Simulated scan of single mutants.
Amino acid sequence: MKIFRADYVFPISADPIKDGVITVDDVGKIIAVSDQIPAGADAVPVEQLNGIITPGFVNTHCHVELSHLHGKIPESGGLVEFIKGIQQLRNSDPKEIEAAAIKADNDMYENGIVAVGDISNSNVTIPVKAKSKLYYHTFVETFGFTPERADAVFNNALDLAAQFKPQSCSVTPHAPYSVSKELFKLIKKYSDANPNKNLISIHNQECEDENKFYRYKLGSFNDLYAHFGIDISYFKPQARNSLQSVIPLLTSKQDILMVHNTCTNLKDIYFIKRFDRRIHWCFCPNANLYIENSLPKIDLFLNQGFNITLGTDSLASNNKLCILSEMRTLQQKFPSLSTEILLQWATINGATYLGIDKEKGTLERGKTPGLNLITGLDNMTITPDTKVRRLI
Rank of each mutant, 00 (worst) to 15 (best):
Lys189Pro: 00
Tyr190Asn: 04
Tyr190His: 13
Tyr190Leu: 01
Tyr190Ala: 00
Ala193Val: 08
Asn194Tyr: 04
Ser201Met: 13
Ile202Glu: 07
His203Gly: 11
Cys207Tyr: 09
Glu210Asp: 13
Asn211Ile: 00
Phe213Ala: 13
Arg215Met: 15
Lys217Leu: 11
Asn222Gln: 10
Asn222Asp: 07
Ala226Trp: 03
Asp231Arg: 09
Ser233Ala: 15
Lys236Cys: 10
Lys236Trp: 09
Gln238Val: 10
Ala239Cys: 11
Ser242Cys: 12
Leu243Glu: 08
Ser245Trp: 10
Val246Arg: 04
Val246Met: 03
Ile247Ala: 05
Pro248Asp: 04
Leu249Ala: 05
Thr251Val: 07
Lys253Val: 00
Gln254Ser: 08
Asp255Leu: 02
Ile256Gly: 00
Ile256Ala: 01
Met258Cys: 07
Cys263Ile: 06
Leu266Ile: 09
Leu266Gly: 03
Lys267Phe: 11
Phe271Pro: 04
Phe275Arg: 03
Asp276Ala: 12
Asp276Ile: 09
Arg277His: 09
Arg278Glu: 01
Ile279Asp: 00
Trp281Leu: 15
Pro285Asp: 08
Asn286Val: 03
Ala287Lys: 08
Tyr290Val: 07
Tyr290His: 10
Ile291Thr: 07
Ile291Asp: 02
Ile291Lys: 01
Glu292Lys: 05
Glu292Ile: 06
Asn293Arg: 11
Ser294His: 13
Lys297Ser: 14
Ile298Glu: 09
Asp299Ala: 13
Asp299Pro: 03
Leu300Tyr: 14
Leu300Arg: 03
Leu300Met: 08
Phe301Gln: 01
Leu310Gln: 09
Gly311Gln: 07
Gly311Asp: 02
Gly311Lys: 12
Leu315Ala: 10
Leu315Asn: 08
Leu315Gly: 09
Ala316Glu: 08
Ser317Arg: 01
Lys320Asn: 11
Lys320Gln: 11
Cys322Ile: 00
Leu324Met: 09
Met327Leu: 12
Met327Ser: 11
Arg328Pro: 04
Leu330Cys: 14
